[in-house]
Measured scan of single mutants.
Amino acid sequence: QLNAMAHQIQEMFPQVPYHLVLQDLQLTRSVEITTDNILEGRIQVP
């Protein structure tokens, strides 16, 4: 299920590496919260 959620987020934010999306999802278990984390700059994109 997390993989499906990660792919959904990757479609919206292809610039964010998959492993970072998955790592955040493991903590949040939420597409909405992880999306917010990306938008708020809480996930550092190399």
Score class of each variant (00 low, 15 high):
residue 1 Q to M: 13
residue 1 Q to G: 11
residue 1 Q to P: 10
residue 1 Q to E: 14
residue 1 Q to C: 13
residue 1 Q to H: 12
residue 1 Q to F: 12
residue 1 Q to I: 14
residue 2 L to G: 02
residue 2 L to P: 03
residue 2 L to Q: 04
residue 2 L to R: 03
residue 2 L to T: 05
residue 3 N to F: 15
residue 3 N to E: 15
residue 3 N to A: 15
residue 3 N to K: 14
residue 3 N to M: 15
residue 3 N to V: 15
residue 3 N to L: 15
residue 3 N to P: 08
residue 3 N to R: 15
residue 3 N to W: 15
residue 4 A to Q: 11
residue 4 A to G: 08
residue 4 A to C: 09
residue 4 A to F: 13
residue 4 A to N: 09
residue 4 A to T: 09
residue 4 A to M: 12
residue 4 A to H: 10
residue 5 M to A: 07
residue 5 M to L: 12
residue 6 A to I: 10
residue 6 A to D: 00
residue 6 A to C: 06
residue 6 A to M: 07
residue 7 H to V: 11
residue 7 H to R: 15
residue 7 H to K: 15
residue 7 H to Q: 13
residue 7 H to F: 13
residue 7 H to I: 12
residue 8 Q to P: 01
residue 8 Q to M: 13
residue 8 Q to V: 11
residue 8 Q to I: 13
residue 8 Q to A: 13
residue 8 Q to L: 13
residue 8 Q to T: 10
residue 8 Q to S: 09
residue 9 I to P: 00
residue 9 I to R: 01
residue 9 I to S: 01
residue 9 I to Q: 01
residue 9 I to K: 01
residue 9 I to N: 00
residue 9 I to A: 00
residue 10 Q to T: 12
residue 10 Q to F: 14
residue 10 Q to N: 10
residue 10 Q to C: 14
residue 10 Q to H: 15
residue 11 E to I: 14
residue 11 E to G: 09
residue 11 E to V: 13
residue 11 E to S: 13
residue 11 E to W: 10
residue 11 E to D: 09
residue 11 E to C: 14
residue 12 M to G: 04
residue 12 M to V: 07
residue 12 M to Q: 10
residue 12 M to E: 06
residue 12 M to K: 12
residue 12 M to P: 01
residue 13 F to W: 06
residue 13 F to C: 05
residue 13 F to P: 00
residue 13 F to K: 00
residue 14 P to N: 05
residue 14 P to T: 05
residue 14 P to A: 05
residue 14 P to V: 04
residue 14 P to R: 05
residue 14 P to Q: 04
residue 14 P to K: 05
residue 15 Q to G: 11
residue 15 Q to Y: 15
residue 15 Q to C: 15
residue 15 Q to F: 13
residue 15 Q to L: 10
residue 16 V to S: 03
residue 16 V to C: 11
residue 16 V to D: 03
residue 17 P to L: 06
residue 17 P to V: 04
residue 17 P to G: 03
residue 17 P to S: 06
residue 17 P to W: 06
residue 17 P to I: 04
residue 18 Y to T: 06
residue 18 Y to P: 06
residue 18 Y to N: 05
residue 18 Y to V: 08
residue 18 Y to G: 06
residue 18 Y to K: 07
residue 19 H to N: 10
residue 19 H to G: 07
residue 19 H to T: 09
residue 19 H to E: 13
residue 19 H to R: 07
residue 19 H to K: 08
residue 19 H to C: 13
residue 20 L to N: 03
residue 20 L to R: 05
residue 20 L to T: 05
residue 20 L to D: 05
residue 20 L to G: 02
residue 21 V to F: 03
residue 21 V to A: 05
residue 21 V to I: 15
residue 21 V to H: 00
residue 21 V to T: 03
residue 21 V to G: 00
residue 21 V to D: 01
residue 21 V to S: 00
residue 21 V to R: 00
residue 22 L to A: 04
residue 22 L to P: 00
residue 22 L to I: 11
residue 22 L to D: 02
residue 22 L to E: 05
residue 22 L to N: 00
residue 22 L to Y: 11
residue 22 L to R: 04
residue 23 Q to N: 08
residue 23 Q to K: 11
residue 23 Q to L: 12
residue 23 Q to I: 10
residue 23 Q to D: 07
residue 24 D to F: 06
residue 24 D to T: 03
residue 24 D to V: 05
residue 24 D to E: 03
residue 24 D to K: 01
residue 24 D to S: 05
residue 24 D to I: 08
residue 24 D to H: 03
residue 24 D to L: 09
residue 24 D to R: 02
residue 24 D to Q: 04
residue 24 D to Y: 05
residue 24 D to A: 04
residue 24 D to G: 02
residue 25 L to H: 01
residue 25 L to M: 03
residue 25 L to C: 05
residue 25 L to W: 02
residue 25 L to I: 07
residue 25 L to V: 05
residue 26 Q to R: 12
residue 26 Q to M: 15
residue 26 Q to P: 02
residue 26 Q to Y: 14
residue 26 Q to W: 14
residue 26 Q to A: 10
residue 26 Q to T: 11
residue 27 L to N: 10
residue 27 L to T: 10
residue 27 L to R: 11
residue 27 L to S: 10
residue 28 T to R: 01
residue 28 T to Q: 02
residue 28 T to N: 03
residue 28 T to S: 07
residue 28 T to M: 03
residue 29 R to T: 07
residue 29 R to M: 13
residue 29 R to V: 06
residue 29 R to N: 12
residue 29 R to G: 13
residue 29 R to W: 15
residue 29 R to Q: 13
residue 29 R to S: 08
residue 29 R to H: 13
residue 30 S to Q: 03
residue 30 S to V: 03
residue 30 S to I: 02
residue 30 S to Y: 03
residue 30 S to E: 02
residue 30 S to M: 03
residue 30 S to D: 06
residue 31 V to F: 10
residue 31 V to S: 07
residue 31 V to Q: 07
residue 31 V to P: 07
residue 31 V to I: 13
residue 32 E to S: 11
residue 32 E to A: 13
residue 32 E to Y: 10
residue 32 E to F: 09
residue 32 E to N: 08
residue 32 E to Q: 13
residue 33 I to L: 12
residue 33 I to F: 07
residue 33 I to C: 08
residue 33 I to M: 11
residue 33 I to A: 13
residue 33 I to N: 07
residue 33 I to E: 10
residue 34 T to R: 01
residue 34 T to L: 00
residue 34 T to A: 01
residue 34 T to M: 02
residue 35 T to G: 04
residue 35 T to F: 07
residue 35 T to V: 15
residue 35 T to I: 15
residue 35 T to A: 10
residue 35 T to H: 06
residue 35 T to P: 00
residue 35 T to S: 09
residue 36 D to W: 15
residue 36 D to C: 15
residue 36 D to V: 15
residue 36 D to G: 13
residue 36 D to H: 14
residue 36 D to A: 15
residue 37 N to E: 01
residue 37 N to L: 00
residue 37 N to V: 02
residue 37 N to Y: 01
residue 37 N to F: 03
residue 37 N to P: 02
residue 37 N to K: 06
residue 38 I to F: 04
residue 38 I to E: 01
residue 38 I to W: 04
residue 38 I to V: 05
residue 38 I to Y: 03
residue 39 L to Y: 06
residue 39 L to H: 06
residue 39 L to F: 05
residue 39 L to N: 07
residue 40 E to L: 13
residue 40 E to F: 14
residue 40 E to H: 14
residue 40 E to C: 13
residue 40 E to A: 15
residue 40 E to Q: 15
residue 40 E to W: 13
residue 41 G to Y: 06
residue 41 G to C: 08
residue 41 G to T: 02
residue 41 G to V: 03
residue 41 G to E: 04
residue 41 G to K: 06
residue 41 G to I: 03
residue 41 G to Q: 06
residue 41 G to F: 06
residue 42 R to I: 06
residue 42 R to M: 06
residue 42 R to S: 04
residue 42 R to W: 06
residue 43 I to E: 00
residue 43 I to S: 01
residue 43 I to A: 02
residue 43 I to H: 02
residue 43 I to L: 14
residue 43 I to M: 07
residue 43 I to R: 02
residue 44 Q to R: 13
residue 44 Q to K: 12
residue 44 Q to C: 10
residue 44 Q to P: 12
residue 44 Q to G: 13
residue 44 Q to Y: 14
residue 44 Q to M: 12
residue 44 Q to D: 09
residue 44 Q to L: 12
residue 45 V to M: 12
residue 45 V to H: 09
residue 45 V to S: 10
residue 46 P to F: 12
residue 46 P to S: 11
residue 46 P to C: 11
residue 46 P to R: 09
residue 46 P to N: 11
residue 46 P to A: 11
residue 46 P to W: 10
